[in-house]
Amino acid sequence: MQMISLKAPAKINLFLRVTGRRPDGYHDVYSLMCPLALYDMLTLTLGGTGIGVVCDHPGVPQDASNLAALAARLFLTTAFVERPLPVSGLTIHIEKKIPVGAGLGGGSSDAAAVLTALNDHFGKPLSRPELMALGARIGADVPFFILGAPALATGIGDRLNPFLHLTPWTALLVYPNEAVSTAWVYKNLNLRLTKGEKKISKFHFDGRFFNVDEHLVNDLEPVTEGAFPVIKRIKRLLLAHGAAGAMMSGSGSTVFGLFADSDRAISARTALCKNQQSQNWKLYVADLLIQGPVVAHVRI
Rank of each mutant, 00 (worst) to 15 (best):
K7I: 01
I51E: 04
Q277M: 12
H165V: 01
V180F: 02
A111R: 05
F210P: 02
Q279E: 07
Y186W: 03
A113F: 10
A102I: 02
G250D: 04
A179Q: 08
P35N: 13
A246S: 13
G135P: 01
T116K: 15
S109H: 08
G157T: 05
L134R: 07
A117V: 08
D56L: 04
A140S: 15
F205V: 00
N119V: 05
A133G: 08
L283G: 00
D219V: 07
G20D: 13
S278M: 15
I51L: 13
S88Q: 06
H165L: 06
D110R: 12
A149H: 06
G47D: 02
N280D: 13
S5C: 11
S251Y: 11
F75L: 09
N13W: 04
R73C: 04
L46S: 03
C34K: 09
I98M: 12
E82W: 06
L289M: 11
T182G: 02
T116S: 15
G148L: 11
A112M: 11
L164Q: 09
R21V: 11
L191S: 04
G292D: 11
A286C: 01
K97S: 13
V29C: 03
P129S: 03
A244H: 12
T194M: 14
N275F: 02
L189S: 02
D206E: 05
P129W: 03
G155N: 09
I156W: 07
A149S: 15
V18W: 10
L76C: 08
K198L: 14
T19P: 08
A72H: 00
S253M: 06
I138C: 10
A244I: 01
L289Q: 09
G103E: 10
T194K: 06
T49I: 00
C34Q: 12
N218Y: 08
P35V: 12
A117Y: 08
A136C: 03
I92H: 12
G52V: 08
E130M: 04
K232W: 01
K274A: 15
W184R: 04
H57V: 02
R269G: 03
I156D: 09
K97D: 05
L193F: 10
R22Y: 13
G106A: 06
G20A: 15
K199C: 02
G25N: 14
L6A: 15
E197K: 13
S31F: 04
D287F: 02
A102Y: 01
I138D: 09
K274V: 00
L173A: 14
G123M: 10
L237E: 06
Q277T: 02
I94N: 02
S109M: 12
A268M: 13
V212L: 14
D158F: 10
A113C: 12
A140W: 06
L90D: 01
I138S: 09
R17Q: 15
L16Q: 13
